[in-house]
């Protein structure tokens, strides 16, 4: 990371108390999108957030998806943009498209018995 946003450092600081923290990363963009690939956001179970993956238009939806990944441990790749059905729910005002990878940072979730 070459920017000042030290999301991994923030996660390392949150991890002892949280046990697990969700990390969302912009992995692909098309057209005009506010944050480049590699931009990151951390989300806790309680809804604490650091960083961003857009200009603010999809953070809420990403934070919701993050709760699921925190519970299951299963990563997700979310697509937002005009060609996606979800665009009508949570579109990008700029008309761009982004793909966001959401993963759980922490010890692996124990398999269900």
């Amino acid at each position: 990371m070459t920017d000042s946003e030290d999301i991994l450092g923030t996660i390392a600081a949150w991890l002892p108390a949280e046990g697990a923290v969700a990390l969302a990363t912009v992995v692909q963009t098309w057209g005009s999108s506010p944050r480049p690939a590699g931009s990151q956001m951390a989300i806790t179970r309680g809804g604490r957030m650091a960083g961003s993956v857009s200009g603010g238009c999809i953070e809420g939806a990403v934070a919701d998806a993050a709760q699921e990944t925190l519970r299951s441990g299963i990563p997700q790749t979310l697509a937002f943009g005009v060609t996606n059905e979800r665009a009508w729910e949570v579109g990008l005002a700029c008309g761009g498209q982004v793909k966001v990878f959401v993963e759980r940072v922490g010890e692996p979730v124990a398999a269900a018995p």
């Binding site: 990371m1 070459t2 991994l8 990363t25 992995v27 692909q28 480049p36 690939a37 590699g38 790749t77 793909k99 990878f101």
Partner: peptide, 19 residues
Amino acid sequence: DESTAVELGGQAWFMQVYA
């Protein structure tokens, strides 16, 4: 010095640069 998505052997990967 650029994080990027790539397709390798039919699988999607993300290469995140930490410099």
